[in-house]
Amino acid sequence: MITIKIYTRLLLVLAVLGLGSCKENENIPEVKADDSFAKGADISWITEMEAAGVNFYNNGGVSVDGIKLLHSMGMDAVRLRVWVDPVNGWCNKQDLLVKAYRTHNLGMRILIDFHYSDSWADPGQQNKPRTWEGLSLDALKQAVADHTIEVLSLLKSNGITPEWVQVGNETGNGMLWDEGKASENMANYALLNNAGYDAVKSVFSDAKVIVHVHNGHDNGLFRWLFDGLKSNGGKWDVIGMSLYPDKDNWRERNTQCLANIQDMNTRYGSDVMICEVGMSWDEEDAAEAFLTDLIAKCRTVSNEKVLGVFYWEPLAHAGWNGYTLGAFDDNGRATKALNAFFK
């Protein structure tokens, strides 16, 4: 059985040599020089999927490299999560480097998503890494800084410069619970957040640091969280949002999200990034309409204050790891949802 260590080494060698692991001949579009709006995807599962033998197919039915396929479909950016010490190795710093190297070689822009956990960090769980358990607040701040610097320095030493870096994932109630739980101690959360922010800037001074919150339609949540950060000296450059409507409420959610974006622009002077979107893979007509409308709304915001939109794991075939909100069908082909990124 192939191990992640062997697999990632092999892929990194192939990336350095400029070779692909799949037969493909996609026409890779050039990003317009005057268009800074990012059209991206979180592709963090791709190495794990490839190791499991999952294939992706173009319109001609040819097996192709999944990242190159997304690029050929109009995406110019990727988002990559990183965990501290995951049990199976996927999404650790070495796996991150492989994916970042591949996307960097395609000229794609990169967003790094620090979870500060060994596994998923989201609104329902913000668990500390195993090796950080029992640390004092000061030690946790140092651990956040050390981990952030270590990962980003690895990228930098390989000639990779991320454009954006998330300090935490969906931190609508803080991170590194219980010490950094915002509803219990906003000041602690601000300190941990700032440890990450300052660490990012120490390696990549020009990178834009994102604080990412779920439910982009919920203005009350965003005001509470960012008012709290601001009053405690919290730092950020960009406000990140997730938006996961369904086929029946996407119009309402898009309207609410746009209003929230405009409020974040006005209230804090912040740029906004839609860091995650998705809809059930078998609702492709609704998903295409939702994304087309959302991207159009984002582009109407004055002074280009919305930086882009990222689809969360579109390459996930229906049911991969139990996830059903990707944009590829059971046969490994893209659904109509991704047409929105052509427009």
Rank of each mutant, 00 (worst) to 15 (best):
D146T: 09
S205M: 02
I2Y: 09
N321F: 10
V213E: 06
Q125M: 13
E276Q: 09
D42I: 08
C298M: 06
N105S: 12
Y323A: 09
F114L: 05
A199Y: 02
V31Y: 07
S205N: 10
K343C: 07
A296I: 00
V54T: 14
L11F: 08
C275D: 08
L137R: 09
A199R: 02
R299S: 06
A121V: 03
P123T: 06
N194M: 04
E150N: 04
P162G: 04
K297H: 10
D271K: 15
L338I: 12
N58W: 06
V151W: 01
L176H: 05
M49Y: 13
P86E: 09
I160L: 00
K201M: 03
Y197N: 04
A296K: 03
T103W: 01
L10F: 14
P245N: 10
Y311K: 05
N219C: 01
G196S: 04
L111T: 13
G174H: 03
L176F: 05
T47S: 09
Y311H: 12
V54H: 11
K93T: 05
F37S: 07
D198M: 05
L229Y: 08
P245W: 07
H317E: 09
D246E: 10
N193W: 00
K141D: 07
G168F: 03
G66S: 09
K128I: 15
D282F: 14
Y7F: 15
M273K: 05
R9T: 13
G61P: 04
T255S: 12
G18N: 06
T131Q: 14
I46L: 15
E163Q: 15
N188M: 05
D85Q: 14
K201V: 00
A327R: 05
G180Q: 04
M175L: 11
C257T: 15
V213A: 10
S270Q: 08
I295W: 02
D263R: 01
Y57T: 03
G240Y: 05
S72E: 11
W132S: 05
N188S: 11
A316N: 14
D198C: 01
E170L: 05
Q142L: 12
K5M: 03
A207N: 03
R9F: 13
L243E: 07
L243Q: 07
M75K: 08
V78M: 07
K336T: 10
G159C: 01
N58Q: 07
H71L: 04
W224S: 13
N215V: 10
M108P: 02
L11P: 00
A337G: 09
V272M: 03
A259C: 07
Y57P: 02
E284V: 12
A187W: 06
D246M: 06
L69I: 00
N303D: 15
F342W: 13
G234F: 06
V31N: 12
G168A: 07
V213F: 04
G326K: 01
G172Y: 04
